[in-house]
Amino acid sequence: MGFLLEVFRDALSALSGGLGGDLGSVVWLTSWIAFVATGISVLIGVPLGTTLGLSEFRGKRATTVLVNTGMGLPPVLAGLVLLLLLWRGGPFGAWGILFTPAAMVLAQAMLAIPIAVGLTASAISGLPLAAKEQLAAFQLSPWNRGAVAVREVWPAVGGAVAAAFGRVISEVGAVLIVGGNIRGETRVLTTAIVQETRQAQFGQALAFGFVLLGMALVVNAGITWLQFKDAAR
């Protein structure tokens, strides 16, 4: 118990200033990378998921299996594939974004898009038959039809966004591989935790962990609040 208490005390003192400028830059980087990656995954994943949920076509089941597999894509595998693609001399090496935040955004989006697609599709598929039939009766453009459907199940789509954000912000394998944990450039909360742990700076690692938990809490609380506010009306 003495050891744990000591680590906990170290974490608290690290939070109250010991992390210094590092904490600021790490939190800032973590936030914007996660928000941009989540944003991309929502922009791409929600329309795709809506299309998948609303349409009937040959191979829909196979597509769903593929998407569900993507939801469980091992982050390190995503990181490795992206590393190979972005490696100088590789297909996209000319972009020169390996070990930069741009590569981390790509990696996280790659992991979050299947989640946005899968959860949106399942929410849309869950619409009652009457709602689907009424939607078809409106004869809207595909885009408007999707918008009405998403609005109808938005608490579930909000849940999909929260899940995508959760995946993105808590992920370490892929961002470590393609980001490189460079201090001030690509060091985010998760990779900082790995590093501090490897250097036996358990207090600092735990402090970063608290901040990570706090960020996930704030975002999820926000989405849940919106869902409850909607349900109350």
């Binding site: 490696w87 100088r88 390996l98 070990f99 470590l176 591989i177 490189g180 944990n181 460079i182 201090r183 001030g184 450039e185 060091r187 990779t191 900082a192 590093q195 490897r198 250097q199």
Partner: peptide
């Protein structure tokens, strides 16, 4: 001056690509 906070292997990759 860039700091990776990582092992030798990953640090060499970063040095190579950057």
């Amino acid at each position: 001056y860039r700091e990776t906070g990582q092992g030798m292997g990953l640090t060499l990759l970063v040095a190579d690509q950057r």
